[in-house]
């Protein structure tokens, strides 16, 4: 996924692939896969790591200079919880970048648009570089952009569903009118999923 550099909040990424850390069969395999992927931005759930432990198994395997950590707030259900978790993450992982995830629905992990917008507004004021996980909702993405988020992360399909770009029509609208990078976040599935159309490529995350 190395094409034109992606720039988010003034930072250039050679790779447009963001990676997660939650489902690997071992931390060693995770490390190997992430290194092979060329990904430079790696999401880490605050709830999965023990930040007080210098030898935390996940964090220990992510200590490569090419990896920047993107803490996520997975597990929070409200804007208030998200802001608190973000502050903890900033303190513990020494980064003000944040993947904002608020899903009060623990079954499908679908994002709460109301709480996400509220939290984003607050977090931007607090100096965070906010990348919110949202529905493929073009209006919401514009509202978040106006709130000052660094990118938007609309879902392609429900998390973990491996169904590809089910929200394609809406993603195209979002990309067409966005002034911030658009990172398609969830449900894409295996690499066999057909790539997005080339017209998406030049200026957005795609």
């Amino acid at each position: 996924m190395k094409t034109q550099p992606l720039v988010i909040a003034g930072r250039t990424f050679a790779s447009r692939l963001f990676t997660g850390t939650g489902k690997f069969s071992s931390s060693a395999l995770m490390e190997e896969a992430l290194l092979a992927s060329g990904s430079e931005l790696v999401t880490v759930a605050l709830k999965r790591v023990n930040v007080a432990d210098a030898d935390d198994d996940i964090l220990r395997h992510l200590g490569h200079p090419q990896f920047s950590l993107l803490p996520n707030t997975s597990g929070v259900r409200t804007a208030k919880e998200a802001v608190f978790a973000a502050q903890l993450a900033r303190e513990a992982l020494e980064t003000n970048w944040l993947k904002l995830e608020i899903h009060p629905d623990p079954k499908y992990l679908l994002p709460d648009p109301v709480e996400t917008l509220r939290a984003a507004e607050e977090l931007v004021k607090l100096g965070f570089v906010v990348l919110p996980y949202v529905h493929a909702d073009p209006v919401l993405c514009k509202r978040l952009e106006e709130a000052g988020v660094a990118a938007v992360m609309p879902l392609g399909a429900p998390i973990g569903s491996n169904k590809g770009l089910l929200t394609r029509e809406f993603l195209e609208i979002i990309i067409g009118q966005s002034r911030v990078p658009v990172v398609v976040d969830a449900g894409l599935g295996a690499p066999r999923t057909p790539p997005p159309p080339s017209k998406w490529a030049p200026t957005r995350c795609w």
Partner: peptide, 21 residues
């Protein structure tokens, strides 16, 4: 679990999140 290709997860929550529940 590791022999079977499964990662044992010891921590998947943070007490601070409960504090805000």
């Amino acid at each position: 679990l590791r022999r079977q290709g499964l990662e044992p997860v010891w921590k998947d929550w943070d007490a601070t999140l409960t504090a805000l529940a």
